[in-house]
Design a binder for these strands. Structure first.
Lengths: 205, 205
DNA sequence: TGCACCGCTGGTCTTAAGACCTGCGTCGGA
DNA sequence: TCCGACGCAGGTCTTAAGACCAGCGGTGCA
């Protein structure tokens, strides 16, 4: 009778956490012992709930995934980094800090379950080719925004309110809100402030 | 019987506009014909209300003061730039674009009235020494934030919410809000997004 | 001693923001 | 024709944000 793998899901977006929980709960050998929305909560959960494997998003406001890894110092649970195309430049540093591997957030459920079992078994999820691919080239590609979303993001990055953007573009505020909601989801930002900072980092606007 | 000087006040902060109106209304030879909260409103007001002198803040989200000056192309009303210690690096470009002078926002009311009359009379408010002082040295000095305000601003610039900041600093959210309110006023930002962008530009955080 | 500044915190209130529901019309491609 | 993407816009609802009222205690300076 083997013990289930105790999992902690760490991501600042409830949608991502819920999505991961929804399919990880279907695996009989997984036990999701906690969720955390930021690094501090994650560290607390690691202390209290003693997960075997942490699914850790690196990009979180405040105490982020990298800080968690550094606080752990290679001790404790195995850490599987959740990343996305826009954030993969952080992965090498995370591996350096003790992560046992990484998966893309849009990985299919079976592959994710397999990745969890692999790191739990003490292996790492690193192939030299994959690491080289990650480290080659310049900044990560920006996610695909529609032309209008890019335009709205550019104006957010100039500090405009939705109302101002609506006026500038000659559309309703409701329409702007829709674009904002959509672009936030695409770039993985929780709010406009993060979106503005993202835009600055990625040379938008 | 001479005509009053028709004034347009352009600043995105209602507090600033109200403050200016409060003391300019006391001058018998001034007639405040309009206010505007951003560059587009300003241009519309210039077309409709035909001010003689525009008191123009350069730093506004969206269509800013510089854009207004460029759109005017040196035609139309005399423009007196409202600036603050943190924004004086924009003044030379504004003068280049046709502004007739500049005053600091914290100027005393009598001096402001005199400045308005001066530019209205066709003169400029530029002394070579003042311009040299503006253009010498590097980036403008940051306004004086308290240590705590700087700290909070740094965390805003990392995309944190008030709640997250409160947790990170070990204080109440109420306290964070107070610091935010105070620092927004000091740096002249209308909201946290603008504050974050300001911080990025000024190397805070 | 009085005052200003600082950090902390409570309260009330308004509103901008954002999530999530919906639907329409246009366009392009299978 | 159907479907997805896109842009536009309506609706409902929650809540984070921010303004502005207040107060406390500590510190430093005139």
């Amino acid at each position: 009778m083997h013990e289930p793998i105790r999992l902690l899901i760490v991501d600042d977006h409830p949608v991502v956490r819920q999505g991961l929980r929804a399919y990880l709960e279907l695996e009989a050998d997984f036990d999701i012992v906690a969720e955390a929305g930021d690094g501090e909560e994650a560290l607390a959960a690691i202390g209290e709930d003693e997960p075997d494997v942490v699914l850790l998003d690196l990009k979180m406001p405040g105490t982020d995934g990298q800080a968690v890894l550094e606080r752990l110092g290679g001790d404790g649970p195995r850490v599987l980094v959740l990343t996305s195309a826009t954030d993969s430049e952080r992965v090498p540093a995370a591996i350096e800090a003790g992560a046992a591997g990484f998966v893309y957030k849009d990985i299919d459920p079976d592959a994710l379950a397999a990745a969890i079992r692999t790191v739990h078994a003490g292996q790492t999820l690193l192939s030299p080719a994959a690491m080289r691919g990650l480290m080659s080239g310049g900044p990560a590609a920006a996610p695909e925004l529609t032309p209008r979303e890019s335009q709205v993001l550019g104006l957010i990055a100039k500090g405009q309110t939705n109302r101002q953007i609506a006026r500038a573009l000659g559309v309703s505020e409701k329409t702007v809100k829709t674009h904002v909601t959509n672009l936030l989801r695409r770039i993985g930002a929780a709010d406009r402030t993060q979106a503005a900072l993202w835009a600055v980092r990625h040379g938008v606007g």
